[in-house]
Design a protein around this nucleic acid. Structure first.
Lengths: 150, 150
DNA sequence: TATTGTTATACTCTATAACTATA
DNA sequence: TATAGTTATAGAGTATAACAATA
């Protein structure tokens, strides 16, 4: 009579667990970077720039999967805090090329260190082998989905 | 000079990848259940009820990590589509016990099947061993974080 | 006429706070 | 006076659509 005995519960599916753990991870990262005045998407933009995945704002909006208007707003704020500069592309003056400043590189490095700290907290519950397997599997899925980062 | 050569990029950290893949997983699941008139949180509520993790609305808000007012709204909608009934606890008439109807059980079973389909799509990029390792690691993290589902 | 960036506006999601009923 | 639930309101985050500048 009860369906649940015959099937894996929804809550242990990959999609459900990725969803809930992803939201938890984002919340923790958000709290960690809050004191720098950053939100996760700011950091995503910095990382995409640093990785060379994109330089113009429209390219960034495609790579990040967000609306162009959001990139404008994120770039405004990052420019305001001195993390990047807008440089007009002389070959096509419509394009704004975003360039990380030294301070932007340093900010990204700080965020990377914070992320590594959170990684260590997460991985503490896992054996080294489990942690490594998790990294590998998530890497495959990220590549498969066309997400930034190698 | 370039920081990136000496450290793992932010985009391959566990937190970043859980965040981005989690948001992708939620978007896919959301699209899959949309035709049923459901959002992921509706399904989360059904799953929490079915798993016996909570019965009163306030308990549900704690288990799900959302505001009590949101549980009211989700329960309103699920009640409106006949997936659950509100039953006053006779011992404490302030409490609304939420009970899944047959139709609610069936709806949850459909959503579970949809999730399993998405799981299969995700796992297609992984070897069987990688998929199993991913499931295990996410299970450990979910338990560690006190998330529902075993 | 098409494209890049920007601005203005609206929508979705969710929380906080005020309120009602019961304890 | 405290608690469960509800309603009203507000805020964050983001998208869509209209607009300006350049191609």
């Amino acid at each position: 009579m009860d369906d649940d005995v015959n099937r894996l519960p929804l809550t242990s599916s990959l999609v459900f667990r990725l969803g809930t753990l992803g939201s938890l991870a984002t919340a923790r990262f958000s709290a960690a970077i809050e004191s720098r005045g950053l939100k996760p998407k700011h950091v995503g933009l910095l990382a995409a720039l640093s990785g060379g995945a994109a330089s113009s704002q429209l390219e960034l909006s495609r790579v990040m999967g967000v609306a162009p208007s959001l990139v404008v707003s994120l770039a405004d704020q990052l420019e305001g805090m001195g993390a990047l500069r807008r440089v007009r592309d002389p070959a096509d003056r419509r394009r704004q090329t975003l360039v990380l400043t030294d301070s932007g590189h340093a900010l990204l490095a700080e965020c990377t260190a914070l992320a590594q700290g959170l990684d260590a907290e997460l991985a503490a519950a896992l054996t080294p082998e489990e942690g490594e397997a998790l990294r590998r599997a998530l890497g495959v899925l990220a590549r498969e989905a066309g997400l930034p980062g190698g």
